[in-house]
């Protein structure tokens, strides 16, 4: 598993690996919104939590189809399936690699993007915390979507349609935590729910994804 993780991280950071793509997309979304709704700080501050979370969601989606499609194209996925590594482990390790190259940079850069959207001062801690708790679920659910659509032509489009509805609970509780935090209210209830969703997804979804891969490899 460690070897697979290191390989995926290495591939992501080399030429054509797409590292930083999600971050750049997030930046563009956060820059476009003030152009669209106007520069009034009050309006922006109101919608900032939602925009930041939707932006993170969409940036995460960008690189999802690469999780298994590239390995399927060059035949590595067949070889990995015959390796001593369990497929559940392959899924978990690939989702972790996706989070490290996509989710983690978003978490770290989110405060900067918060400034672009006039996020009120008390919200920053909760923005980082909610993204840190929520984005792992996005990567694992995305790995499941990628496993279901692997081998399909234009699977990326179908993948978005499959995965975005699954992101709704994470989006609701994540954005709500930031909104309450920014308004000076107690954000712990949505945060606990967010963490619960992530833990449930981490525990269950790799098995579903591995079964989907097994069917698709036949």
């Amino acid at each position: 598993m460690k070897a697979l993780l290191i390989r995926d991280l290495r591939l992501a950071t080399r030429a054509g690996g797409g590292f930083g793509l999600a971050l750049a997309f997030f930046l563009i979304v956060c820059t476009l919104v003030p152009f669209g709704v106007g520069p009034q700080g009050g309006t922006l501050a109101l919608i900032a939590p939602g925009i930041l979370w939707v932006g993170a969601l969409l940036s995460c989606l960008l690189s999802l189809d690469r999780i298994f499609a590239l390995d399927h194209e060059d035949g590595s996925l067949d070889l990995l399936a015959t390796a001593p590594l369990p497929l559940e482990g392959v899924v978990a390790s690939k989702a972790l690699a996706h989070w490290l190259t996509t989710g983690l940079p978003l978490v770290l850069a989110a405060p900067v993007f918060g400034i672009l959207l006039h996020l009120p001062g008390p919200g920053y801690v909760w923005l980082v915390l909610s993204l840190a708790l929520g984005t792992p679920a996005l990567s694992v659910l995305g790995a499941f979507g990628a496993a279901v659509t692997v081998g399909l032509r234009r699977g990326g489009l179908l993948l978005s349609l499959l995965v975005l509805p699954l992101y709704i609970p994470t989006l609701i509780f994540g954005a709500e935590a930031v909104r309450r935090g920014a308004a000076g209210l107690d954000p712990w209830t949505p945060l606990v729910f967010l963490a619960a969703i992530t833990l449930a997804v981490l525990a269950l979804v790799p098995f579903a994804a591995a079964s989907a891969l097994r069917v698709n490899l036949r």
Partner: peptide, 20 residues
Amino acid sequence: ADGLKSALTVTENLRFWAEV
């Protein structure tokens, strides 16, 4: 299909499979 990663070198490709 050979299951090679074009961005990795020959040794890196082999070492990956040896570790797996």
